[in-house]
């Protein structure tokens, strides 16, 4: 009950932040009603997906300070559970999604338990290694289509199918995902003010002190890792229904893991808005850069070069990301 109240309570943010977030929420609600291209809608769906990935990452990576670079394996578990269940046994999305989350969380315990004996760089690299091992396994596992992947035969179902989450028009996907997005924001708002949220932030700051206060640091990390995993797997299930064509190379690749972490770090790890800002800047940039440069001969990769430069500049200038820049600017204005 208290958690529910905390989820809807944004009173500790500044008035400007509240107004901006309300405006963004309103914009997201009416966005498909505006005269926009299907490309823009697709970009917005990507934005919402990566915001959610980033929110999940932010629990362990941002509040907990454990840089996790292996989130793609859980995208894969979610996506594959939903796809396999739908293709083989015609299981509805709303059943396969929580089941996928369950598998992902179980796997996260198996991986997380040994993983969190490591810290810092060692942890980050080990998460990559773990994720790559799972991807290699999926690439030879015939049950899930091995390297060819799986395709959801969308034409077999009468659309719009809200039970299996199979639509022809992106706008349906958009609104389903938007509901997830608002749910995610509310959950994160409660999380950051929960017991675990505060404990994690102390763990990030000073593990020994956390231990001396009776916190089981290892278990707190494993638990948070499972929460992050559930988030990511949920979006993975959505990804399967949305993209319809999944293979290990794109649902479980290291590039995806890095992108998830990058969004949140660039936007501002450990703040509620960080992942949303990160995705809100990087996803449209990525899509439109690609649109502008990708088609032109001789400029292949130009989009990602600009992209890389932005990342490099932010990391060198303000390690707390774009939200860090905002806060620094605000602090300067207040002290002046």
């Amino acid at each position: 009950m208290e958690a529910l109240r905390a989820a809807f309570d944004f009173s500790d943010f500044r008035p400007t932040e509240r107004w901006v977030s309300r405006a963004v929420a309103a914009f997201l609600l009416v966005f498909p009603l505006l005269p926009v291209s299907s490309f823009a809608t697709a970009t917005m769906i990507q934005f919402l997906m990566f915001s959610l990935y980033g929110m999940g990452w932010n629990t362990i990576g941002g509040y907990g300070g454990q840089v996790d670079l292996g989130k793609a394996q859980y995208v894969g578990i979610g996506a594959y559970t939903t796809a396999v269940a739908l293709i083989r046994w015609d299981v509805p999305f709303w059943v396969s999604m929580p089941v996928g989350m369950g598998f992902a969380v179980l796997w996260s315990f198996a991986i997380g338990y040994p993983l969190f004996r490591l810290r810092g760089h060692y942890f980050a690299i080990a998460t990559i290694a773990a994720s790559l091992v799972l991807k290699d396994l999926f690439e030879v596992w015939d049950f899930v289509g091995a390297a060819r992947g799986l395709e959801i035969p969308a034409h077999r179902f009468a659309t719009p199918d809200f039970v299996r989450l199979i639509f022809k028009e992106d706008v349906y996907y958009y609104y389903v995902l938007l509901a997830f997005f608002f749910g995610g924001v509310l959950y994160m708002n409660a999380f950051r003010k929960s017991r675990l949220g505060y404990q994690l932030r102390l763990i990030k700051d000073n593990e020994d002190m956390a231990r001396s206060l009776g916190i089981n640091v290892h278990w707190a990390k494993v638990k948070t890792y499972a929460i992050a995993t559930a988030f990511v797997s949920m979006v993975g299930s959505f990804h399967a229904c949305y993209i319809k064509n999944i293979e290990p190379e794109d649902t479980m690749s290291l590039d995806l893991s890095i992108l998830i972490a990058l969004m949140a770090m660039l936007g501002g790890a450990g703040s509620l808005w960080g992942p949303i800002i990160g995705a809100g800047i990087l996803i449209p940039l990525k899509s439109y850069f690609k649109e502008w440069f990708g088609a032109r001969a001789g400029l292949v990769g130009m989009d990602l070069i600009l992209y890389a430069l932005i990342i490099m500049v932010v990391s060198a200038v303000e390690p707390r990301g774009i939200w860090g820049l905002v806060e620094r600017h605000r602090a300067r204005r207040e002290s002046a």
Partner: peptide
């Protein structure tokens, strides 16, 4: 301390036990 917790929030973590 190097983190971003406030004095109150730090004290709260103790009470959370």
């Amino acid at each position: 301390a190097g983190g971003d917790l406030t004095v109150l929030e730090t004290a709260m973590v103790g009470c959370f036990s």
